[in-house]
Amino acid sequence: MSPSEARVTHPEVAPVHVLAPATELVRAERAGVSYGDTPVLAGVDLTLRAGDFVGVVGPSGAGKTTLLRLLLGTQRPTTGTVRRAPGVRVGYVPQLETVSWNFPVTVGECVLMARSGRLLPWPSRAERADVAAVLERLGIGHLVDRHIRELSGGQQQRMFLARALLREPQMLLLDEPTSGIDVATRHDMLHLLGHLHDDGMTIVLTTHDLNGVAAHVPDLVALHGTVVRRGAPLDVMTPEVLEQTFGAPMDVLQHLGMPVVLDRHAPGRPHGA
């Protein structure tokens, strides 16, 4: 373990949620995961450092969620190793599809789950203020007493983001935060994550929205059972890498210095839009 990592184990020494830049948070070496006889990931080499803002792209079944689970530590590698710096506070925003929407909780109750250590059932005055503040910051303060099902997709994403942020995480992982929401909300969400990154938070997200991440996320990972390529959008969004990742030919144009991906079979129609 390097000297800079030692700081991670003593969060009280470090500032609240900002880790020293480039501190190694997670290192996967030749990591693989199989469910039964079915390999999902194999030979994954990936290092995550404090201050990274990474977007993971790949087709359905490429292992994006499994990769997040490896980084979180809820999934152990069946081959290789994943080393995680101890004591890092993690916030996780799950895929909306995996949530049980009939569960009887209000937005406020859901967000408060993040403070699970309290030995009394009701929130303290300070906790209530914290919840109000984080919901307000995300623009859904007025929805605190609504049932979670009554929210739109974008509001639901923000609610889970609020729950993750209430933990004041040093590392934030989001599974498909841009799916199930419209284009404008998608850009708002990516902008919001950009601001959090500017504040020093380490962020990893998975997405199907190639052009969205290309425009907002500085560091991309193309995944298809293994890491096909990692780098800046212009290095990852190339026809070769995309064809290798998605198994379909795609064209890439440049617009204002950013790559724009086109599906070759439907000219003029941006992929994933």
Binding site: G73, T74, P94, F103, M113, R115, S116, P121
Partner: peptide
């Protein structure tokens, strides 16, 4: 109360959130 609620609602996220 909250640990039980979180673990009932979403065990995986609860697990990474300190429960």
């Amino acid at each position: 109360y909250r640990a039980l609620l979180f673990a009932t609602f979403d065990p995986e996220v609860a697990d990474v959130s300190g429960v």
